[in-house]
Structures are given as structure tokens and as C-alpha cells.
Write a protein that binds this DNA or RNA. Structure first.
Lengths: 212, 212
DNA sequence: ACAAAAGTGTTGCTGTTACACCCATGG
DNA sequence: CCATGGGTGTAACAGCAACACTTTTGT
């Protein structure tokens, strides 16, 4: 192909959600060659009549059920040979949603620590996304915790989530003390049934941050 | 123009450097219409034979003198009307360099808090970059302090830098205590002449981080 | 000797860690 | 009554904030 200043761009949307204190990612199975039956991050090729943001929105809308997501751009991937067929530049976005059953047989939620066989460079892209995501969670940048937990939750769930992100155990009393001290959650008054004593339910205060 | 899946992409490189405890950005004056004599972030249009990274490298190499820079991608800007002439998607990279005199009459260093008249959406792009940059500095992500200060410096300089970033005064004793405690700098044994008592010079320890 | 900037310690406060027992519910 | 998971307090320690005087150099 001759040198040109026109390029093909695709947006990829890495969709994350909490599931029982772990983080899952929503992936799509490839139906056709190349990489048939390998998994990919969902996305679309960008036309010259849309913005990156509208393209991402299109991807989200194609996945049902949709819930209002939080989305931000992470990085672009532009190696000349990342696609064996043609040169495509990928720009990745991370989306945080509430996990729901997906009624598309070609899509599935995976634990971010045990991904299936990924096509192209999508495994590296996800690795890079996870790193960025964790740092954003630990700083609670942009109030991202609220995006993961827009609904009510127990402190045990939240603690598992942090243990998952930090990959280490946290002392329960200290964790609760910190959460209460930082004033980022409120009681709902409700309780949730579990195998033992019912847990109190909390919600995040809007505008509550860990730092500052 | 008809709908197509080909797009024009430009890389922009926002080049930052410390200057006496402040942060400056290197901008280029536009010689031609549109936006003649307005200022822009330097960059290049991407061909289909290069990656985003090689395009950025080309931009850096056109600016003399070059010193080995630290570069990372921030965000892309893709509004349909951001360029009045044609549809161009901009992907921004931030570069941290050591400030030197630039022997190009069309380029100049500006304090990031007092930018000149900017062309296109470049003022918003810089605003977004500055926000990202500050957060990276405060977390010392990727050891970015070392990129700003690869040479030796006095603690007074470093403190001014933090005061500039935080936009508030810091107590000198507490600042020095923290820096020493965190073990991120070493004495060089050298001193620098100032208007008063000479200051001791320090360098960053490689691999020294504020957190973790 | 004075002007200019660099260097230095102590105290109180606040947040973090380490640690073990009782409580509420369902079966 | 037992299994399961939820909820709670205290003491030692570490990091952070507030605060003013002395030292080194050039003129």
C-alpha cells in the first residue's frame, strides 16, 4: 500500500464491572478468521463523520442491557503489524458499568486475572488498562468508586473489592474505621441477608473522596 | 465529503520543562492562515507508514537542541469541527525535557499559567494536559520527578516546583524532612552560589518513589 | 555589619497498624 | 446449639503540621 496520510482507527471499549468483590471484563468471541474463536475487546471502526466518543457510545448501545456507564480514554495502540490484515490504530476506552446478564451468546464476563485466549494485541491492551484502572481506584480519581458501586453494598463487599485490587488481606476493623473516618459512605438503614448475621447496607456519598 | 472509514490523525507533543521552580511549555507560532500568528502545540500528521510513537519522535527531532525526553500519551481530541478546514483527530503526548534555548524563531517557552493566544482547541488540550501532569507529579508516577530534574538541584528549587504545582506555600522544614525521610535524593557534595548562603546540591535517586 | 537565602528540632495531632471477642441470623 | 458471616475498641507507632532562630556567603 502506498504512503498516505489517511488511517483506519478503531475504538475499543474495555467494559469493567464489580462481581462479588472481583472485577470482571466483558469480552466478545470472534466468529470469523483471523483469530476465529479467540476473544476481543468490543469496538468499532471510526468513520469520518463521528467522534471517538460517539463511536464508543455506539459500541455501548449495541450491548444490551445498557446501563449508564462511566467512560474515559486510556491509550492508543498503533504498531504497523498489530492487525495481520490491514493497518488499524486502536484507541482504547475504559467503561465502568453495573454487571448484568448479557443476552448475546458471543459475549461473556471474565475475571480480569484469568482471561481467555485473546486475539491481536488485546491481551496487552487489557493489561495496560488494568494497571491504569487500579491506580484510578486507589486514588478514587473522578470518584470512580461510585461508578463501580452506584447501588448499595455491604462493607464486606467493598473490602473484598479493595483486597482484590491490592491483592492482599485488609484488617476488617481498620478498613471500616478508615471508610467511616473519610466520610464517604452513609447507612441506608437496610440490611442484606447472608449465610450468617445480615450485613448493613451503605451507599457512597456523592462528592466523597479519599484524598483532599 | 462522503462518509469514509479513513481519517486524518495528527500527533501533538506538549513539551514541558522546569524553569526556576515553574513549569513552562514550548509552543510554536503559526505562520499561515488559518490562525496566523496564533500559537499551537507542535506536531505532525500521521502517515500510514508510521506509529504514533515514531511520529512523536519526528516532532521531537525537529526541535533543536534535543535532549532525551520522557514521553507519554494523554488523550485524543476528535470533534468534527476542531479544525475549520478539514476533519483531523489529534492525539496528544506530553514530553518532559530539560529546558534549553531553542534556536527556532517560531518557537518559545511559555509559563503554563499565562499562555499566549492559542489556535484551534489547543488551549483546552493544554488545560487537560496540565491537570493530568500535576496529578502525575504529585503521585510521582513513573518517577516523573527524575524526568523534570535529571540534573542536580537545590531543595529550595524543588520546593518552589511543588509550591507551583500545588499553588500554595509549603513549610521549608517539613518539606525537607519529608524529602529526606522518603530517601529520594542524595547529596552531591557540591554547592550552588546564590544571593545569600550557598545551597547544597542534590540529585534524585533512581528508583526512588514517594509512595510504596 | 547587613542583606539575602540556606539550614535546622520539638511538640502536638492525626492517621495507621496490630490484635480477639461478641452478635445476629438461619437451619 | 451450631455454623456462618457481621460488627466492634484500644494501645503503640509513624507520618504530618505548626512553629523561629542561627549560619553562610557576598557586598
Amino acid at each position: 500500500m502506498a504512503k498516505s496520510y489517511y488511517n483506519v482507527i478503531e475504538t475499543l471499549v474495555s467494559i469493567f464491572a464489580v462481581d462479588k468483590g472481583t472485577i470482571k471484563i466483558l469480552l466478545k468471541r470472534k466468529k470469523r478468521e483471523p483469530y476465529r474463536n479467540y476473544w476481543i475487546i468490543p469496538g468499532h471502526v471510526l468513520s469520518n463523520e463521528e467522534t471517538l466518543e460517539t463511536s464508543v457510545k455506539k459500541t455501548m448501545e449495541n450491548i444490551n442491557p445498557v446501563n449508564v456507564p462511566y467512560i474515559y480514554e486510556t491509550k492508543s495502540f498503533s504498531s504497523l503489524d498489530r492487525d495481520p490484515v490491514e493497518r488499524i490504530i486502536a484507541t482504547n476506552f475504559n467503561a465502568i458499568v453495573v454487571k448484568e446478564l448479557v443476552n448475546d451468546y458471543e459475549m461473556e464476563w471474565f475475571d480480569i486475572y484469568s482471561l481467555p485466549k485473546m486475539a491481536y494485541d488485546h491481551e496487552q491492551i487489557i493489561e495496560s488498562n488494568i494497571k491504569e484502572l487500579k491506580s484510578r481506584i486507589l486514588h478514587n480519581d473522578d470518584n470512580i468508586l461510585l461508578k463501580f458501586f452506584p447501588h448499595d453494598f455491604t462493607l464486606t463487599e467493598l473490602q473484598s473489592f479493595f483486597e482484590f485490587v491490592l491483592n492482599k488481606k485488609i484488617d476488617r476493623r481498620n478498613f471500616r474505621k478508615k471508610i467511616f473516618n473519610d466520610n464517604i459512605v452513609s447507612h441506608t438503614g437496610e440490611k442484606i441477608k447472608t449465610a450468617g448475621r445480615p450485613g448493613e447496607l451503605f451507599v457512597f456519598n456523592k462528592g466523597g473522596y479519599f484524598n483532599e
